[in-house]
Design a binder for these strands. Structure first.
Lengths: 209, 209, 209, 209
DNA sequence: GATGAATGAGCGTTCATTCAT
DNA sequence: CATGAATGAACGCTCATTCAT
């Protein structure tokens, strides 16, 4: 088994339609994420998506009601995966500061290794979908957001975090991290281990009491 | 001159086409910004723009080569206005910390009062245009960015700012402010004077040595 | 055997696919008629039909070559049933007038009780299929049409029916009845026994010598 | 000026875009009516229509909001023209019987000379549009329908018309005429002057007291 | 210079039909 | 035989751009 035989397998996969049902859905999701991350929602016509994913145009609509639903579903997939990653080793019982650093490192680690997920997420957040989504999120915090709120409230109670609104806490804590990840992905800076730590640490400086 | 005669003037302006060349360009820019800020690039067809601006569809193309150019030009207009605002009373001779606070307050003040400019800017930054633009900016710092670099370098030299890359300095210093303004505009939080100060101050905490 | 066990049978029929070959064909025909009568040919995708009929999409094509054939077949089914109804007690030996009244009453009775059949028929007649069909019918009169021709010729011979072409006889005799049934089904009028008689009688007035 | 130079003119008309605004709308209406009359609503894609009409695909949408609107507008055009024809010499002051004959003759005359209008009308009436339309018409009678109602009421009052609902009067009076026109247009019969008179006369027989 | 009617490529989506299972 | 996932041509419609007036 070498690179050539693997290519030949891919050839079969595309041409001989040996993709299973799950394969198809996965292929669509993967291709859509790549295309949208790189070209944006409007730079990714369904026809291009179907072509690159190696499926018929109508096939996409078996898995996703329409383009909007596909876009939201894609975001949910990323969100779910990230939350799972975050919660896997979350140090629930450790001090607020340690939890804060854990979250910051997770965000950086996860998205630096999944640049497509990151760029997709950025596009999503900055779009009509994103605003609607954000509104719902603030009303009904779940997953990592729920952790963050707990963290925030615990920090407030213990007087280790400043007296600020939750929303502002999010902004101070995570905005620089997100921007730094973006700059890393776009090649404007390289985040080594020291720098990562420095960034998270600086964010902590901005919220700690 | 009363409200009625002014309305009549507007009527003439739209219906009798007595707009001068400069008027036309201004009208197009103003209308485009409003529409795009509210509906997005793709929710703003050129036909709608020309209608709302009170000019012919073809006329837009006399002032802007195509839609892309118009979009970039619009951004430059905002950028120019913001820079002018920022530089107007910039305390060049004062300490780094004071300059930093001045910039932070300026960003908040300016964009809270110009939510359309803010929303336009956000849309722009998060689009193919934005990335291209950002790349150019980092290579060739101008205006407020130039100030910021000077500030950063001065801060480094005086050992009042952490030893971090310039890009990361930007992220730590301004990302939370931008996000907070966004949350204010979207109604997720209300930035009063105390809170504004607290945010800028927290950003300073994150970059100061 | 009670209502519950019958429901259970239906459940089996749909879910466990114990429908026989004839059951399947019947189910497709019945469902297709309902759907098309209510939604029209173009409001009835094959996928919807297969779903509502409880069969696979491909299965329909084992019984009907394609959608066109299905549509024509459906019409033939209705036509056959109506002819059977008409011929069941047809008073062959009675006077022309009596036969005429019998046919008129039959049309009203049959279609008022089978509004789906009526609406299907109307849709069919008014479509490319309908014209083609009508052409064939006039060349080769069969069933009720054959009766009608016999009736017409007998009426002519006995000088109880006007000297008009057969086609015009059909128009005078049946058009008002069909239209009246349509108005009844659409709820624009209610045909009680008196009114039914009055309509048929009026049609007779228009063809009688 | 001969056939060739005329063809050349048509060539210019199509290729050099010398059609005026009104020409374009007319061309679209004319072409749409031809195509739909012959192929049906669903046999007439907008692309085919635009091609045959010699206009761009988008141009149709400058004149008609969408296909549905186009279809209804087309019907209204026919309806308007027919009403004008009918009302032109309508013998308002003459006896009911004479008015009845006038209307019958008008229907036959008009639609025999405009077979496309007739076939279009038939398609329209037998479609979701038609039913909606008919419902409105019965509620709010206008134009020829209004005349007919007046005629009906006058006839009732003078006891020259049977005691039947208005709707049934319409059915008896006009259904055979419409069907006969259809048969003429489809070539199943030829309506000469005698036959036309005989049909209208027979319809009168069916409604007269 | 200004206009806006006209354009047509391109979009998201549907659905009759096929064919591997 | 029956299935239903997959297909892709075709649909109605949009909109950035052009160009005759």
């Amino acid at each position: 088994m070498n690179i050539h035989s693997f290519s030949f397998f891919l050839f079969l996969k595309k041409k001989n339609k040996i993709m299973s049902k799950i394969d198809k859905r996965e292929e669509i999701i993967k291709t859509a994420m790549e295309l949208i991350a790189e070209q944006g929602f409007h730079g990714t016509p369904m026809a291009l998506l179907s072509e690159k994913a190696g499926v018929g145009a109508g096939t996409i609509y078996r898995y996703f009601e329409n383009k909007d639903v596909l876009i939201k579903e894609l975001y949910n997939e990323i969100d779910k995966k990230f939350k799972a990653f975050l919660m896997e080793n979350y140090p629930h019982e450790r001090p607020v500061r340690e939890c804060f650093f854990y979250i910051g490192k997770c965000i950086i680690e996860y998205f630096i290794n999944k640049p497509l997920d990151f760029r997709y997420t950025e596009q999503f957040h900055n779009s009509p979908y994103g605003i609607e989504f954000r509104r719902n999120k603030l009303i009904n915090l779940t997953g990592e957001d729920y952790f963050c709120r707990i963290l925030f409230e615990k920090g407030r109670e213990q007087q280790v975090i400043k007296t600020i609104p939750l929303v502002i806490f999010f902004d101070l804590a995570f905005a620089p991290i997100i921007w730094a990840v973006r700059d890393h992905i776009l090649g404007f800076v390289t985040l080594d281990e020291d720098l990562k730590m420095q960034i998270v640490s600086s964010c902590w400086d901005s919220v700690k009491m």
